[in-house]
Design a protein around this nucleic acid. Structure first.
Lengths: 203, 203
DNA sequence: AGAAACATACCAACTGATTGGTATGTTTTA
DNA sequence: TAAAACATACCAATCAGTTGGTATGTTTCT
């Protein structure tokens, strides 16, 4: 695909992402997407064989960007803090900074949006969601394993438990943040979890 | 409305709830709802002036039932445990029992579903969601206030913080539970939070 | 190099199916 | 017997997707 074609495809994805995060996938007609890009139906279906293909491409791109952010934050944390506990704490701090820089109105999490539309999507989409959720958990789990290996926790906890907790906590925080349009909730909860970690592992 | 009319209205709501939780509201046509009740369009629009009215009625009923469950669990906890900490812990245990008794496939939380469809609904629906979320938080906050009043927490925490945390944690757990069709996640996370509370407040 | 052959990117207009909703009946119940 | 509770038969709008076509490259052949 030429440079020009690639650009329009991105434009369609940009418009679709904004609308889908706002209203959900099923509630976002193709007509509205093309209206917001000043393109036509022909152009849309030239780039995406079906609306379902858009759903897949949209989530794929979102997952890729999400992974990139995660990797970037992890790399910066690795750079600045060698100690496992400090590394984990810093990673969460960097995540808070990232959320703080997000635009209002707070868009929410696309995985969550897709999860609650369930039946609408095919197995490929479900696999993507699975991969993302398990990916997050795995990253956290590795970090917490290192922390537990380096220090005796004040309370008996497993890395897996902690990892699942922070993923749940953040997804829930994303939901409330969206309901109230208050991204600060995410930051508050992440900070609270940091305090919990310090409490568990610091002297 | 007569007994019979009330019954059919409930039947419609039952069918709608199952479908909406499965696929989302916008992705659930009225035709599918009436198909699953063996009724007709005339009957549906006799009971609900519009599909939007169904959305409101559906969430209202869900909120009422949710509140009833909450009150029931709280009453049982109050009955069995006077001590604030034991009361809070027991309340969570009873909630875990309740989740454990829920049917598979795990349906998820209707508030979350509605939140991620945002734009679709009117201000009345948003008010209902707000009320429910703030209601949960308020119940937890009162319980944790009593706990904090009765004991010195090992770490400085506020009742409000703890309340927001458990609400986020549970909503996130509901999301993962739905993604994996594993309600056990909710139970695990609630149990984990109980351990955290005991750790904070027990000697 | 330059023309012929082909591919990509897009558009305007249309299509059949589905959508929420209505108008007009018929049955049931109080 | 008169509302309330349904059913039947429709409608206008909207939906995802198609059609036939043009304009603009890009590659291939001479």
């Amino acid at each position: 695909m030429s440079r020009r074609g690639e650009d329009t495809k991105e434009r369609i994805l940009d418009a679709a992402q904004a609308l889908v995060l706002e209203r959900g996938f099923a509630a976002t007609p193709v007509d509205d997407i093309i209206k917001s890009t000043a393109l036509t139906k022909g152009a849309f279906f030239h780039h995406f064989p079906s609306k379902g293909d858009l759903a897949r491409a949209l989530l794929q791109r979102y997952a890729d960007e999400d992974l990139a952010v995660f990797d970037r934050l992890a790399a910066r944390a690795d750079e600045l803090a060698e100690d496992p506990l400090q590394n984990a704490l810093l990673f969460l701090s960097l995540f808070e900074e990232f959320v703080d820089a997000m635009a209002k109105p707070f868009p929410g999490c696309m995985f969550a949006s897709y999860i609650y539309e369930g039946q609408t999507f095919g197995p490929e989409v479900h696999a993507l969601i699975d991969e993302a959720l398990k990916g997050w958990t795995a990253v956290y789990e590795r970090k917490f394993e290192a922390v537990i290996a380096s220090r005796e926790p004040r309370q008996k906890v497993t890395a897996k438990q902690l990892a699942e907790s922070i993923v749940c906590l953040m997804e829930g925080a994303f939901l409330l943040a969206r309901a109230y349009d208050e991204p600060e909730i995410i930051i508050r909860q992440s900070r609270q979890f940091r305090a919990y970690l310090r409490f568990l592992f610091e002297d």
